[in-house]
Simulated scan of single mutants.
Amino acid sequence: MSMIRDLRAAVRPSRVTPHRGGGACDPDRDPGTASAVVDCAVYRDGRRVPAEEPLSPHRALRQVRRDGGFVWIGLHEPTEDEFAGIAREFGLHPLAVEDAVQAHQRPKLERYDDSLFTVFKTVHYLDHDQVSPNSEVVETGEVMCFTGRDFLITVRHGGQGSLRTLRHRLEEDPQLLVKGPSAVLHAIADHVVDGYIAVADAVQLDIDEVETEVFSPGRKGTPRGTDAGRIYQLKREVLEFKRAVAPLLRPMQLLSERPMRLVDPEIQKYFRDVADHVARVQEQVTGFDELLNSILQANLAQASVAQNEDMRKITSWAAIIAVPTMVCGVYGMNFEYMPELRWRYSYPVALTVIVGICLGIHRTLKRNGWL
């Protein structure tokens, strides 16, 4: 058991503390957007353009369309008013803007005239020592991407899934960033799917632990049916994981197979690898669901067998107790004319007969596995 916990700790994905408002505020922009913008930067020739002061989305877009490059804006849980100015400035489609603000969307890819709108579900494994009927195993969030010719806007929902580390890693690879916004879109997709793989490995260890406990011999003294709640809770968490992974396969296939003018042809090839990873995780999660169904059915079958064994034991002892009950009941009727009432040895003979019959029944039932 301790070995499983050590392995689970080893595959837990690292957590990044979300950051709000760092290095994004600018005096001449709409103050309503200050709390939502996490970072705003211009990239030209694969490198981040230094700025003496934090850029506003408006100034960044003007700079890009004057000097070239692209702008990457990161937002965290913007309100409708906070996002309205950016949506107008970049010409985002109202339906996509509504989805980005309200969140709780399924993974998808939508194409508009001048942009792509992509929704990713982020999944994070929550630390725990043991799965309980009330424990939460996975936590989901959302990352939405607006990809245009010269901009990429990411909208993040949830306490996990920060893209700050990814941004820093991309800034260290100018050859990739020079490909434009589609390179960042691929990096985000790859980052999200890598999180799926790590969570899948951790959930696999949880399932192995529950499976080991359910089928472990020598579980005497454990209350019957205590594992059913844990298995059902784990099944619910796996179902939530499945909802995040399964719908993403089709968008990744579209990005890898269909030519799109907003996606660099060289970057498009890399989406095939992401689609393959999504397919692998989808198969793994589907297997988790089926395996948990089998474990739950086996656990219920074990509980049913245990109940049947208890009933057989109760029935066996009831049959043994019925012998003295019947004999004592007959001779307790106190009729005047009853055989052996005045016989000197009637009492010890009656006790001997009762004990003998009870021992014979007990031996027979024990030989047949009822006791």
Score class of each variant (00 low, 15 high):
Asp114Lys: 07
Pro339Asn: 12
Gly91Met: 12
Phe146Pro: 11
Val278Asn: 08
Ala298Gln: 02
Ala103Trp: 05
Arg243His: 13
Arg280Asn: 07
Leu365Lys: 04
Phe335His: 03
Glu77Asn: 08
Lys269Trp: 02
Arg8Met: 12
Ala51Glu: 13
Gly159Cys: 10
Arg312Phe: 13
Leu255Asp: 03
Leu365Arg: 07
Ile4His: 11
Tyr232Leu: 15
Ala246Asn: 11
Leu291Tyr: 08
Ala244Val: 01
Ala279Arg: 09
Pro223Cys: 14
Ala275Gln: 10
Pro78His: 03
Thr122His: 07
Gly74Ile: 03
Asp67Thr: 13
Glu309Cys: 01
Glu171Cys: 05
Ala306Arg: 13
Val285Gln: 02
Leu7Pro: 00
Gln160Pro: 01
Ser56Tyr: 04
Arg8Trp: 07
Val49Asp: 02
Ser14Cys: 05
Ala350Ser: 15
Ala228Met: 14
Val305Glu: 14
His58Pro: 01
Thr226Trp: 09
Asp289Ser: 15
Glu211Val: 07
Thr364Met: 12
Lys108Arg: 13
His124Arg: 15
Val274Leu: 01
Ile86His: 02
Arg8Gly: 02
Leu292His: 04
Ala244Arg: 03
Val138Leu: 14
Arg156Trp: 06
Pro57Asn: 10
Phe83Ile: 08
Thr33Ile: 13
Ser2Met: 12
Asn368Leu: 11
Glu209Val: 06
Asp45Ala: 13
Leu292Gln: 06
Asp194Thr: 09
Tyr196Glu: 04
Arg342Ile: 12
Arg230Glu: 03
Thr315Phe: 08
Leu292Thr: 00
Ala103Glu: 04
His168Tyr: 10
Val184Met: 12
Leu163Val: 05
Leu255Lys: 04
His93Pro: 08
Gly159Glu: 11
Leu371Val: 10
Val143Ile: 15
Phe70Gly: 07
Gly369Met: 06
Thr17His: 00
Ile86Gly: 06
Ala319Pro: 06
Gly148Ala: 12
